[in-house]
Nucleic acid binder design. Structure first.
Lengths: 261, 261
DNA sequence: AACCAGAAACTGATATTCCAGTTTTCAGAT
DNA sequence: ATCTGAAAACTGGAATATCAGTTTCTGGTT
């Protein structure tokens, strides 16, 4: 049984290494390949019906983007971030998103401002529902995060600067993946959390927008970091073994859900 | 005659594709492969004494970083940026560097603050000398820009966040390369330009540092953009031909200095 | 049981080879 | 001279095969 779809016909005219990149990336982001999961070029090539060469190209690219880590001649796996890397990611994100917010307040179109307000209401409603459910649902959680991503990308794209939007997306993709590691207990957000943010972005001065966004980005940072630290501590020996260790893990842990077909 | 060094012995234990990446990148940044220069995987592989495969891997990586552009089955060349891309690069850089300045003011060590002040004096002196010379010297220009890069990297590294420093370096490397396209007439800087910046970073509040850095980053932006626009306009048909056109250009222009051995 | 060495299995890296698409060249027609 | 079109040259993409390093397995020793 394969974890991946086989050759979407829609992507048929892209180079194989691009198809491989997109499909592996999607599999990781969808949680089919969770952090720590070993990746075999050969079996992946078989599943994707291509040679190992385009798969290697795709993995090289994913590695340079920080989604995957590889040790020469030993193995490749979905990257398990360190606490320091997560912290660094948040720092970069704060830089990019505060600037994005500033530019949005300065030059977003009326149409985009209205769209942002509407999306903020949807998002708040979505999180509210999520907070009420007794049993944590991974799918709903994932859907909410996807909407959250869309919200921030709307802000970035409304600035009209593609490069800024791309940089923010890169930064967010990593965090998006890592959030699945902590899925289970949900970190609650204040009510109207995004509504208030959108309000300031739409009607506030650029400085106010930037500062509001700064608070927004920082809000989850400490909670996420603390959770990662406790996970790493609880699982110290496994974590250490994995740091330089084998590719094919056979044990499960609170931190990792590893699969071996 | 080869443009590239052949296999540095110091890098001998790195994977070949990494060696290729480093050497090609250095060749581009040193101006041996100027923007627009065609890149042949086969001849490059021969020069580097390896097969085309690691060279392809290296070029794929350089492409994802924006230093090189490739059209399937047509050719690869050092990237010629558009005006919009240069503008986007400046936007991202402003976001990263203002945040870097803010963090520096907040938590840089005394040692790093002193080092920054010293370097700012050296840098100002360097630019002063550059402004006085009658004939523009590409080597001196390059040396000054290298020092300039070091200055900003010191600020970034003193924040203690590796990911932020890496993001700033990526962003700056592109501009560094593009600046060589405009070498010839020098855009003068006010005296004590970096001295004043360093002063605020070292002694000012985080907000003051961020705003000072914002002004600093924006200063050259308009001048650089204007120059690029005029170059593109003056060279419109060639520029257009190149946009989708042939790999091996045989003509020279104000914009491009293309080589064919 | 715990341990250790050697064999087997697997891994990523690389060379070689071939293929199909693009560009260039150049002879022949206008 | 200028245009045209077919062939030649070159390009990047991909498959296959092989190599050397790492990890895992296995069976014998203590």
């Amino acid at each position: 049984m394969s974890l991946l779809k086989k050759r979407l016909p829609a992507e048929v005219d892209l180079p194989l290494h691009t198809q491989a990149y997109l499909q592996i990336r999607d599999a990781i982001l969808a949680g089919k390949l969770p952090p720590g999961a070993p990746i075999s070029r050969r079996s992946l090539a078989e599943q994707l019906k291509m040679s190992t060469l385009p798969v290697s190209d795709a993995l090289l690219r994913l590695e340079s983007e920080g989604l995957v880590e590889s040790r020469p001649r030993a193995g490749t796996r979905v990257k398990i971030p360190t606490v320091s890397e997560i912290n660094g990611n948040y720092v970069v994100r704060e830089a990019l998103e505060t600037h994005s917010a500033r530019l949005f307040a300065e030059l977003a179109s009326v149409r985009d401002r209205k769209r942002l307000l509407k999306m903020s209401r949807d998002l708040d409603r979505c999180y509210l529902l999520l907070g009420r459910t007794t049993t944590p649902d991974a799918d709903k959680h994932s859907a909410a995060e996807k909407l959250h991503l869309e919200f921030h990308m709307l802000v970035a794209e409304a600035t009209g600067c593609k490069e800024l939007a791309a940089a923010i997306e890169r930064s967010r993709v990593l965090l998006f993946n890592w959030l699945f590691m902590t899925t289970g207990d949900y970190i609650p957000l204040p009510p109207r959390w995004h509504g208030e943010l959108a309000e300031v972005l739409v009607n506030g001065t650029p400085d106010e927008a930037a500062e509001k966004m700064r608070v927004h980005v920082r809000y989850r940072k400490d909670a996420v970091l603390a959770k990662f630290e406790s996970l790493h501590a609880a699982d110290q020996q496994l974590s250490k073994a994995i740091a330089r260790g084998p590719q094919r893990a056979r044990r499960q842990s609170a931190l990792l859900i590893l699969r071996r077909d």
